[in-house]
Amino acid sequence: MSEYIPVLIMLIIGAGTSALILVATTIIGPKKSFADKMEPFECGESPIVSPKLRFSVKFYLVALFFVIFDIEAVFLYPWAVLFKSLGLFGFVEMMIFLALLGVGLIYIWKKGALEWE
């Protein structure tokens, strides 16, 4: 556990630096506000639609694929560390697992879920 203490010190120093910059820039800079200036930037126009509307469903799909394939990657890490001691059996077993996910990748590919038109 003791090897994590330097990480903790680093975390405190890092967070402290970030917080210091934030506080400094909030205190030092001038503050002049009027209605026209506080508008969100829209290339000189007044914004007519709020950004908090619906957006493309494609982004949700990417998030779903990410969960599937990233969990696959998480399973691969311990296997990769022990690869040499697991031998042929471990290799074949993991390749079957990868093949199953490969079939999944081909399926979403053929379904057109990876197309951005």
């Binding site: 829209e42 908090k52 990410f66 990233d70």
Partner: peptide
């Protein structure tokens, strides 16, 4: 609360998730 920022954030999240895999 800005349209450009929001689009940028959506693009960034999808891109970073895709390439992280």
């Amino acid at each position: 609360n800005n349209n450009w920022s929001f689009l940028g954030a959506m693009r960034a999240s999808a891109q970073m998730l895709s390439y992280e895999v």
